[in-house]
Amino acid sequence: MTPAPAVSLNGARSAADGPAVPMSPQDLVEAALASVAAGAVEVLVHPRTPCGRQSLSPRVVGPVLEALRGAGVGVPLCVDASIGAEPGPAGRLERVRSWSVLPDRAAVSFAEPGAEELAEALLARGVPVEAVVPLGGPAGPEPMARFLAWPVRTPGRVRLAVELAAADPALVAGLRGLPPVAVLLYGREAAAWPVLRLAARCGTGGRTGVGDVLHLPDGRPARSNAELVAAARAVWEAEGTGPTAASR
């Protein structure tokens, strides 16, 4: 199977992080199309208001999703539903319940308050959930404990996205006894490429994109999301082909 990661188009970045970060709907469309052409099998987007603020408002999320789909981005679209877009748990619930255009998946951080209720609200609307759990970092074991205590872990409707602070095989080994849901591994900044290599060796899903990392494996600044996706495919081929993000 051809190695193909998911792509995080913009993450929590701002325009100050450089020209490789797409912000406007048109920039996101162009970045998504180029990333898919380079091999990305799923697109994670953090919708922004015209002033650049992350938002879960239906007036922001809907037009971004419509623009992406209307332009022919045919892979699944995931929207981040984190505290960065709406600080309060009640506000996040209100926002996702008011969406008129639904993503193919929504990312919910189990390191944030109200994660379980938010995930259940999304599932009730028919939106599969990406349960984001950091491992090996300052959050400690609590996010994973919260995910394991959450009773809704239906394969096909829930995917576990594990953010690793470092490419530690021992952390991944501990995932083998988890419920039978798909797993995607990713890292940020200095951990991004080592974790992608680990994901390729372990056969999980993987992810790249300027939302996670701004440099290529050789340290050069990335010019675009598509360049990162192409580099990730090369890394995957070198390390051993695993499942794509979409097939997990």
Score class of each variant (00 low, 15 high):
residue 111 A to Y: 04
residue 36 V to W: 02
residue 55 S to V: 05
residue 20 A to D: 06
residue 235 V to M: 07
residue 158 V to M: 11
residue 24 S to E: 10
residue 69 R to G: 12
residue 241 T to D: 09
residue 238 A to I: 03
residue 51 C to Y: 03
residue 12 A to L: 08
residue 143 P to Y: 00
residue 131 A to D: 05
residue 99 W to I: 01
residue 100 S to T: 15
residue 49 T to Y: 04
residue 34 A to L: 04
residue 1 M to C: 06
residue 23 M to C: 11
residue 65 L to R: 00
residue 136 G to V: 04
residue 239 E to T: 10
residue 185 L to W: 09
residue 103 P to D: 08
residue 92 R to K: 13
residue 124 A to Y: 00
residue 184 L to S: 14
residue 162 V to W: 08
residue 4 A to W: 07
residue 223 R to W: 01
residue 215 H to W: 02
residue 122 L to E: 08
residue 215 H to Y: 03
residue 243 P to E: 10
residue 147 F to L: 15
residue 94 E to Y: 02
residue 182 A to D: 12
residue 162 V to C: 13
residue 122 L to G: 11
residue 218 D to A: 14
residue 76 P to H: 07
residue 129 V to M: 09
residue 43 V to R: 08
residue 115 A to F: 11
residue 61 V to G: 13
residue 8 S to F: 02
residue 190 A to N: 05
residue 248 R to Q: 07
residue 206 G to H: 06
residue 130 E to C: 10
residue 233 R to N: 06
residue 7 V to F: 09
residue 213 V to Y: 11
residue 168 D to K: 05
residue 189 E to Y: 03
residue 210 V to N: 03
residue 146 R to L: 12
residue 10 N to T: 07
residue 212 D to G: 06
residue 231 A to M: 09
residue 176 R to F: 01
residue 120 E to T: 05
residue 178 L to A: 14
residue 229 V to L: 08
residue 93 L to Q: 13
residue 16 A to Y: 04
residue 122 L to A: 12
residue 57 S to R: 13
residue 67 A to G: 02
residue 111 A to V: 03
